[in-house]
Each structure stands twice: as structure tokens, then as C-alpha cells.
């Protein structure tokens, strides 16, 4: 489903983001698996060029974006209080245990405990919409 080109692009985006965890830059991540895992996120999060949010903020281009920057989305106080951008490392830590990483987040998701799942998901998130 997902072309080799998109996979390469994903690796390039990840690699271009400064200090990237080596495993995230690896081009052996399974982007199709990541796309299937994204079904869990897609319950709440749109990810498209409209930028319009749903029950969760739009995730278009999330890697490298300023944290809590989706237009008009009512973020939790905890999430709004975060500084900086979503690096792959931060997303990885957040997705592993959202409520431990950002206590007070209102995202109703318990986390992806399996590191390979997170790696594949990040790979997908780094790919083109």
C-alpha cells in the first residue's frame, strides 16, 4: 500500500530532525503496520491537510510541530503548558505511557507498550499524509 518512496521520505524526515533516536531513523520500520496501528489514533485524530481537528487534534505533520498548536483545539491545561516541539523521542515517550509522560493529559489512551509498535507508528506519522 505504502510506496518505497514514502518510506524513504519518512526516514529522511526523521533523520533531518537533529538528534533522532537511531532506531527511529532506521529504514527497516514497517510503515504498513504503522498505518494499521494508526487506526487507534484515527478514532479521535484526523490527519489531513485541512488541519481541522476532531475529538483529538489534527496530526498532520505532527513530527516537528510545536506541541499543542492545532488551531482552536481545546487542549488540556497540562498539554498547553508543554514547551517545545514534538520530536520523535518525545512522541515515543508520550505514546508509551501518555498519562505518565504528561500527567493531566485528557487523551483517553493507555499507551502502546510495545516499542516496535511505536517505532512503526512513528514511521507512519513521519510519512506524507
Amino acid at each position: 500500500m505504502v510506496s518505497k518512496g514514502r518510506r524513504l521520505l519518512a526516514a529522511m524526515i526523521l533523520a533531518g530532525l537533529g538528534p533522532v533516536a537511531p532506531h527511529l531513523a532506521a529504514d527497516n520500520c514497517d510503515i504498513d503496520r504503522g498505518a494499521r496501528l494508526f487506526a487507534k489514533c484515527a478514532m479521535c485524530h484526523p490527519r489531513d491537510e485541512t488541519g481541522v481537528s476532531g475529538a483529538g487534534p489534527n496530526l498532520a505533520g505532527i513530527i516537528g510541530r510545536t506541541i499543542a498548536d492545532a488551531d482552536g483545539f481545546p487542549y488540556s491545561v497540562a498539554m498547553s503548558g508543554m514547551d517545545g516541539i514534538w520530536t520523535p523521542e518525545r512522541l515515543d515517550a508520550f505514546l508509551a505511557a501518555p498519562m505518565a509522560y504528561i500527567p493531566g493529559t485528557t487523551m483517553g489512551f493507555g499507551g502502546l507498550r510495545n516499542p516496535a509498535d511505536r517505532e512503526n507508528l512513528l514511521c507512519y506519522l513521519a510519512s506524507e499524509q
Binding site: R36, L37, K40, F109, G110, G111, L112, R113, N114, D117
Partner: peptide, 8 residues
Amino acid sequence: LLDVNDDR
């Protein structure tokens, strides 16, 4: 009894 976010 079940991690609902783990596909396996």
C-alpha cells in the same frame, strides 16, 4: 486481563 492497545 487485556491490553486493548496491543494488537497481538
